[in-house]
């Protein structure tokens, strides 16, 4: 079975060693997904796998036949950006731009996780319904390192989109 990436099917005829990240970047030409550390330590390679965010560097492409992947290119385009992409631009939630696609994919999944009722380590009541405070956004976005230090603006961008969705 092929893998579906941003709605298009791709054959998985690759060296089994190929990470999903390298398959996206080299095999599919989808270089919006970035390689920052290749070891699950920075989050630049974050994509949505069947709707959930993962580090695409730490999984093998061959393990994902039949799965559906959404990358930054599948979220929105320059002509039709996703609300998060537009909010990141408005709030200057990036500088060099290298961690940015991962941040935005992560934020997309994060909002879905909150909607699904997932709590985080900083939630007062781990059994209760989460409230998306700034502290919650910071904890939930801590898997995406930004060396330019755009965190304040990233939080503002996400908070704005979350409010609009609420």
């Amino acid at each position: 079975m092929p893998i579906t990436i941003n709605g298009a099917e791709h054959d998985l005829d690759v060296d089994p060693r190929t990470s999903l990240l390298d398959f996206l970047r080299t095999g599919c030409g989808l270089t919006g997904t970035k390689k920052g550390c290749d070891h699950g330590q920075c989050g630049a390679c974050t994509v949505l796998l069947n709707g959930q965010r993962i580090n695409s560097c730490l999984t093998l492409a061959v393990m994902h036949d039949g799965d559906s992947v959404t990358t930054i290119e599948g979220l929105g385009t320059p002509d039709a950006p996703h609300p998060l992409q537009a909010a990141f631009v408005r709030h200057d939630g990036y500088q060099c731009g290298y961690c940015t696609p991962g941040q935005i994919c992560s934020a997309k999944a994060m909002l879905d996780e909150v909607a699904a009722g997932w709590t985080s380590f900083v939630s007062d009541d781990v059994a209760g319904a989460p409230k998306l405070s700034e502290e919650e956004i910071r904890e939930r976005m801590s898997g995406n390192v930004c060396r330019c230090g755009a965190y304040s603006n990233i939080v503002a961008a996400i908070a704005e989109v979350a409010e609009a969705q609420a």
Binding site: N55, L58, R140
Partner: peptide, 21 residues
Amino acid sequence: GQYPVLARAILAGATFQLRNK
């Protein structure tokens, strides 16, 4: 609800991305 120490410990580790996998 019943094993919050476990939920809390899992949430203390790694990141949402890593825990999803």
